[in-house]
Nucleic acid binder design. Structure first.
Length: 220
DNA sequence: GCGCCGATTGGCT
DNA sequence: GCCAATCGGCGCC
């Protein structure tokens, strides 16, 4: 097995993805992003990881998307903007999620990056993640943004600007791609738009399918 | 203006 | 496996 955790930026950070890569449907882009490398220079430190799990979020036809019914709002406007842009939002009072905007400007769509295999800047990631073990540095959407130092100040940042970049992956090496429902949704969970590297131990743990049944709430 | 709830996580049973 | 934490966005009065 290849050790991707180079002490210095190596071949994995060689070729940035062309903007045209993102100018397509999120359901096409999401599986192709597996094996590519997401890199951040937050805080002047280079941190990067191989993408091992993604989810596609579509436009108004997708009940699980932030672009489902509301139209353009202050939060989701970046989803409607130019492709190859980071859409970062804050949720659950604690966590940031990073999406990569797809489709031409004016059409809403994005790919949520859900998990990375750390490949560079492990010390910085470990410090930001309070000493957690390697496997738990980036195995979830809120964890990887913390490890990469990504927050709301990255919302709307163009990929390749120096702050955030996505590099071509290990192709021609084949990646075993698995598909499932998306994690954590209360609507749109029936769509199979989650893609992950089947053998990777760095994918998130997370609930797919309908929300767990709620106990009856005492009325009064 | 008010209240509910989330594209989650981490700690505890 | 279950559940609290935590706060901005969004729906609705």
């Amino acid at each position: 097995m290849i050790d991707n955790r180079d002490p210095a930026p190596g071949p994995l950070l060689r070729t940035p993805l062309a903007p045209g890569f993102f100018e397509r449907d999120p359901s096409v882009v999401a599986p192709e992003l597996l094996g590519c490398v997401l890199a951040s220079t937050a805080g002047g430190v280079l941190t990067a990881g191989r993408i091992v799990e993604t989810e596609a979020y579509l436009g108004s036809a997708d009940a699980g998307s932030h672009a489902a019914t509301r139209g353009i709002t202050k939060r989701n406007q970046v989803m409607y903007g130019p492709p190859a842009t980071a859409y970062v939002y804050f949720t659950y009072g604690n966590h940031h999620m990073i999406n990569l905007v797809c489709l031409p400007e004016g059409e809403a769509g994005a790919v949520l990056v859900r998990a990375l295999e750390p490949v560079h800047g492990l010390d910085a990631m470990t410090a930001r993640r309070h000493g957690r073990p390697l496997r738990e540095l980036c195995n979830g959407p809120g964890k990887l943004t913390q490890a990469l130092g990504v927050d709301l100040s990255d919302n709307g940042i163009a990929l390749g600007s120096g702050r955030l970049s996505v590099y071509d992956g290990e192709r021609p090496f084949a990646i075993d791609v698995a598909v499932s429902g998306r994690v954590g949704l209360s609507a749109g969970f029936e769509l199979e738009l989650r893609y992950y590297e089947k053998n990777s131990s760095f994918v998130s743990r997370g609930r797919t399918g309908p929300p767990a049944a709620k106990r009856a709430t005492p009325s009064k």
